[in-house]
């Protein structure tokens, strides 16, 4: 059974909706329920990071799907790889050779999306794993700046959709993920250095040591006395 393009798109929305919910104040209850498995979700910072990672993952997969559609359209000469339903018509947008690559560079937008979300994921996962690291501030700054740059590109792509006269549901999904990720970086930056961040760090550091001990893993000494 072959799923139509709109049904396939729903699979990308699942992590995005989950992530958005977790990032929102409504996600507190869900975070608490999941905290037995992932303890950091008990904190605002943990929920924001967890939600961001889910949203970015959805953004990455939808960008990869967009690149696949782009290549398939080029291979088959247009074709119906996306559903064309009124104004929502990704074939006309992704298959449009005048607009479907970056100006000057010529990279397909899907590939750029994959690279952007891969970078975001790396930044967010690194922070989630070591929230007290010295480079957290620079990771957040890179995330914010690339987020703003990406939003400018989104405006350009919305203009392209306006020129073409159609909207691309896959591209819009990636745009939503990007904007949500950028908001997440700004929220984390606001938290960073404040009580929300440091309280969470204490909890995380303690629980991390406990979890590693449980798993029998190496626990790096924190004090010079521990080393001796």
């Amino acid at each position: 059974m072959e799923l139509d393009a709109n049904t396939q798109l729903m699979f990308h929305w699942i992590p995005i909706v989950f992530g958005l919910f977790l990032m929102s104040p409504l996600g507190e209850g869900l975070g608490k329920q999941l905290s037995s498995r992932w303890e950091s979700l008990d904190t605002v910072r943990g929920r924001t990071l967890g939600g961001m990672i889910a949203v970015m993952f959805g953004g990455f997969t939808v960008s990869a799907h967009t690149l696949w559609i782009h290549n398939k359209a080029s291979e088959m000469g247009g074709g119906q790889f996306c559903s064309a339903d009124g104004v929502w018509d990704c074939s006309s947008v992704i298959g449009n050779s005048d607009w479907n690559t970056m100006p000057f560079i010529g990279l397909p937008w899907g590939l750029l999306g994959m690279m952007a979300f891969a970078l975001f994921l790396w930044l967010a996962i690194s922070i989630a794993k070591e929230p007290s690291a010295t480079w957290v501030s620079s990771n957040l700054s890179i995330g914010r700046n690339f987020g703003i740059l990406g939003i400018l590109m989104i405006f350009y792509l919305i203009y392209a959709e306006y020129e073409i006269g159609k909207l691309c549901q896959y591209c819009t999904t990636a745009h939503v993920s990007h904007v949500a990720s950028t908001i997440g970086f700004f929220r984390l930056s606001k938290m960073y250095g404040g009580s929300d961040w440091s309280n969470s760090s204490v909890i995380t550091a303690e629980t991390e040591s406990k979890e590693r001990r449980k798993r029998g893993g190496y626990v790096a000494p924190k004090n010079s006395s521990e080393e001796e």
Binding site: A118, L119, L121, W122, L123, A124, I125, S126, K129, E130, A133, T134, W135, A220, P221, K222, N223, S224
Partner: peptide
């Protein structure tokens, strides 16, 4: 003491996943 090993490990774990 700042734990440099964990800091580097977090980045490389993230990089590996990505």
């Amino acid at each position: 003491r700042r734990n440099i090993c964990n800091e580097a490990g977090a980045r490389s774990d993230g990089l590996m996943f990505v």
